[in-house]
Simulated scan of single mutants.
Amino acid sequence: MNGTMKDGNKPEPVYAAVFGSIMVVGLPLNAMSLWILLRRHSLKSTSAVFMVNLAISDLLLVISLPMRVYFYATGTWPLSSRACNVITMLLRNNLRSSAIFITFISMDRLLAVVYPLRSRHLRTSSNAWRAAVLIWVFVLVVNIPESVFFSSSSGHHTDSTCFKWNPHLYSSFVYFMCVVLFTLLAVNIVCTALVSWTLHKHLNESAKINNKVNVMLIFAMNLLMFTICFLPLNVGIAMRAADAIIPLTCLATVNCCLDPLLYYFSFDGFWKKKQDVDPARER
Rank of each mutant, 00 (worst) to 15 (best):
G3C: 11
E12G: 09
V14K: 08
V18E: 00
G20I: 02
S21W: 11
V24N: 01
P28C: 02
S33T: 15
L37G: 12
R40W: 15
L43A: 00
A48Y: 10
N53W: 13
Y72T: 02
Y72N: 07
A73K: 07
T74Q: 02
R82K: 15
I87C: 11
S98Q: 13
A99Q: 04
I102L: 15
I105M: 09
Y115A: 08
R120W: 07
S125L: 13
R130W: 08
A131Q: 03
V142F: 02
P145M: 07
P145Y: 10
S147H: 06
S147N: 11
F149N: 06
F149W: 05
S154P: 01
H157C: 03
H157T: 01
W165Q: 10
H168S: 12
L169G: 03
F173G: 01
V179A: 05
V179N: 00
V180T: 03
N188M: 00
V190R: 06
V195D: 05
H202I: 01
A207P: 10
I218L: 10
M221I: 10
M221L: 13
M225W: 03
F230M: 08
L231W: 03
P232R: 12
N234I: 02
G236D: 12
G236V: 12
G236L: 12
A242H: 15
A252T: 03
T253L: 05
N255T: 06
D259R: 08
P260I: 02
P260T: 02
Y264L: 11
G269V: 01
K272N: 10
